[in-house]
Design a protein around this nucleic acid. Structure first.
Lengths: 200, 200
DNA sequence: CGGGCTATTGAAGCGTATCAATCAGCGTGG
DNA sequence: CCACGCTGATTGATACGCTTCAATAGCCCG
C-alpha cells in the first residue's frame, strides 16, 4: 500500500484491525493540541514497524496520529495474525521485545532532551539518533545519510520553533560540525557533535 | 523491604534479577545529565509496579534510576518467576499489557506537555494525572488528595525551575483553581483546571 | 519561467531561568 | 516546651534563550 508524502494515514482514536510495517520512506507519529500546536513523538524509518505499541495493545484506540514524511509504501498485516505470529516463537517474542525496548529508550531520551537540554543539544541528539538508526541498516556512508525531514519536523519533535531550529543548524554548520543541505545530512566533526549532544 | 525518603535504591545501569512493587509511599524514575541536571520520567504511586519496563526486558541494564520520594516499602519478586507468572494466564497478561499501555500513554502526554505546553499547562496536567491515578485507588475525597512531592520534583518532571513552579502554583492558587499546602492538594475549580491543562 | 514550498534573516517581545535573599514549617535536643 | 537548625517555599531583580512577526531569498517542479 502506498501513500504520498504529507498524508495523515492513521488518526488518533482509530481502532485498528491491521498492523503495518514501513517498507520504504519515512513517517512520524504525532499529537495535536486544540489550537494546532503539534508534538512529534517519534520518527519511523524504512523497516520500522508502525504501531509497535498497538501490537501490544490491540483493540484500543490509537493514542496518536501517523503521517508520511516522504512518499511511503507500507505492508499491512491482520493484527490478530500478527500477534499470534509474534508470540509463537521465542525468537519472534524477543525481537518484538527488543524493538519495544528501543522505542521506550528513545522516548525516555527525548523526554530528557526536551525537558533539560538546550536547543543545540536537542538538535545534536536528534541527528545522532537518526544516524544510529540508519547505521544499523547500513545506510550511512562516511557519516553521510538521507535526512528528508524539514526544519518544521525537527522543531515539532524537539519542542522548538522552525526559526530557531534554522538558527541552531546554522550554528552547527558554522562550527564545522555538520554539513546539511536539503535532504542530506553529513556529520563532519563527530566528536564535537557527541559532546554537544551530551553536554548542552 | 523498606527505604527512607530521598534514597536512590535502583541505579541506571544496574542489571536486575528482581522486580518490585511499591507497597506504600511514593517514588520516581529519573535520569541525570553529566552536569547534574535531572529529568524525572515518571512518578510511582502506592500499588504501582516498579520496573514495569524491566518486566518486559529482563537482563538489560536499567535505563534510569529510581528514588524514593517519601518513606516507602516495596515487595520484591524474583524476576523470572514474575515473568512466568504474568505470562501464565490470559488475565495476568492483560493486566500487564494494560499497565504498560497506561505507562506509554503517560509518557506520550508528558512529551507533549514539555514540548508544547506552557508552564501553567504542564503543572495543571501533572495535578490532573496524579488526581486521576489516585482516584482509581479511591484516594481522592472531594477533590483533595495526598501530594507529597516538592516543587523541585514538579520542576524536574516538567522541565521547569523550582522558582517558576512556585510562581505557577501561586498563580493557580490566586485564581482559585487549587488549594495546595505542604503535601495536600485540593482541586477547587476542576473545570478551570481542565481548561488550563488542555489549552495552555 | 512561474508558483509554491522551505529556508534564511532581522528586530522586538516574552516566558522562563538565574541569582540571591528572606521566610516558614517542622523535627530535634536540651 | 521552646530555641535551633535544616529543608523547602517565597519573593525580587535581572538576564537570556527562544518565540513571534514579518520580510526576503532560494530551490524544485511543472
Amino acid at each position: 500500500m502506498n501513500f504520498a508524502a504529507h498524508k495523515t494515514f492513521l488518526r488518533e482514536g482509530d481502532i485498528l484491525t491491521k498492523m503495518f510495517t514501513l517498507y520504504s520512506g519515512w513517517a512520524f507519529c504525532f499529537k495535536l493540541l486544540p489550537d494546532g500546536r503539534r508534538q512529534i513523538l517519534s520518527f519511523l524509518l524504512p523497516g520500522d514497524s508502525i504501531l509497535l505499541e498497538s501490537l501490544c495493545f490491540p483493540d484500543e484506540p490509537l493514542p496518536y496520529s501517523v503521517k508520511s514524511l516522504t512518499d511511503i509504501s507500507v505492508c499491512a498485516f491482520a493484527l490478530n495474525e500478527m500477534i499470534e505470529l509474534t508470540s509463537s516463537t521465542e525468537a519472534q517474542n524477543k525481537s518484538v521485545a527488543k524493538a519495544m525496548r528501543r522505542h521506550c529508550a528513545a522516548m525516555n531520551r527525548r523526554l530528557v532532551d526536551i525537558g533539560r537540554r538546550s536547543a543545540i543539544g536537542r538538535v545534536a541528539q536528534l541527528i545522532l539518533e537518526i544516524e544510529d538508526r540508519l547505521g544499523e541498516r547500513d545506510q550511512v556512508r562516511d557519516g553521510a545519510f538521507h535526512f528528508p525531514m524539514r526544519q518544521e519536523h525537527m522543531a515539532d519533535a524537539l519542542g522548538l520553533t522552525t526559526v530557531y531550529v534554522n538558527r541552531t543548524l546554522d550554528r552547527l554548520r558554522k562550527e564545522g560540525v555538520i554539513d546539511f543541505k536539503r535532504d542530506r545530512m553529513k556529520i563532519i566533526n563527530r566528536a564535537l557533535l557527541l559532546q554537544t549532544a551530551e553536554e548542552e
